[in-house]
């Protein structure tokens, strides 16, 4: 992985500054930014007039119209607002698998790092959540540089060790996240999505219902997709520690069928829920995959 950034330093992440993360959906926000707000407020760009009602700030009254029409009208402005985003990184044991030199968790950290940098650079508030089977850490969205540094620090600490604590219930995690984000937001989920597909889709549905925009990054190792082991092998779960002896040559077709079915199911569901589903393999150049996705998103 030659083009993997050597660390999560902003200087290294700066190579992605050509891309701007633009929310395709209207999100609500306080700050003035690139993103169109659904709320008509009192900002720079005029939208329409409306009759004054008690409680309106008298400073918004259009005194010219009062002079002409002798009625009170207040000006309404279309407001640009900043984006609110949250990055969610799966730190369960399966993310620690690496058949080559790069583990999936490492790849995921870079995805999150790149997004955090880009969003922060365009003055958007970015939050971060990491989760595994036991605990979750959450940093609420903020747009300061100090906050960016905090997120990057937290990313560096994310590990996916082999353990026996069990799998994380991704559906539940997503549901909890959607409840945490009270306003509409851009949610970037980075995971291998190795969990019950129905539960994952159920969790994603919560995001859609709450009008969040979701980008779902599925990080995979090539060996997980091809299952090209040889000889009798004892496979040990990185999450539960359970072991199964199998001849991978004879198991391959069945494995691949199920793997493909799982991913297809997720992909269809994402399509239905208007969620970007991005599959990344750790043996492919990170920079190229990331650049492809961001440039494609920019064109839309």
């Amino acid at each position: 992985m030659n083009d993997m950034p050597g660390g999560l330093a902003p200087a290294r992440l700066a190579r992605y500054r050509a891309f701007e993360v633009l929310a395709h959906r209207v999100v609500e926000g306080f700050m003035t930014g690139l993103h169109r707000s659904p709320f008509k407020g009192f900002a720079i760009e005029f939208d329409e007039h409306r009759p004054y009602s008690p409680g309106d700030d008298p400073k918004h009254v259009d005194w010219r119209l009062v002079g002409k029409l002798d009625r009170l009208y207040v000006k309404q402005y279309e407001e640009d607002t900043s984006l609110r985003a949250c990055l969610a990184l799966d730190c369960t044991g399966s993310m620690g698998y690496a058949s080559g030199s790069v583990a999936k968790i490492e790849y995921g950290r870079y995805v999150c790092g790149v997004f955090a940098y880009l969003l922060n650079r365009q003055q958007d508030a970015v939050g971060f959540m990491s989760f595994d089977s036991g605990e979750q850490t959450f940093l609420p969205p903020a747009a300061t540089r100090k906050h960016l540094m905090a997120i990057l620090d937290r990313l560096k600490q994310c590990q996916a060790p082999v353990g026996t604590q069990g799998r994380a219930a991704l559906g539940d995690v997503f549901e909890q996240l959607s409840h945490r984000l009270t306003r509409r937001a851009l949610i970037v989920i980075v995971s291998d999505l190795f969990d019950d597909a129905e539960a994952i889709i159920r969790g994603l549905t919560h995001f859609s219902q709450r009008k969040h925009e979701v980008i779902l990054f599925q990080i995979l190792d090539r060996q997980e997709a091809t299952f090209s082991f040889a000889g009798v092998t004892q496979f040990q779960s990185r999450e539960t520690g359970e072991a199964s002896l199998a001849d991978p040559v004879r198991l391959r077709r069945s494995y691949i069928e199920q793997f493909e079915a799982h991913n297809s199911h997720l992909r269809e569901a994402c399509h239905r829920l208007h969620i970007d589903f991005v599959q990344m393999f750790t043996d492919e150049p990170f920079q190229r995959q990331m650049a492809q996705y961001l440039s494609a998103r920019l064109r839309r």
Binding site: F194, T233, Q234, F259
Partner: peptide, 21 residues
């Protein structure tokens, strides 16, 4: 002999291995 001589691999996609088995 083949059964006795096997490698141990901590694996990510165990859910597919187990269901295939």
């Amino acid at each position: 002999f083949n059964r006795a001589r096997h490698q141990v691999v901590p694996f990510g996609g165990m859910m597919f291995v187990e269901s295939s088995l």
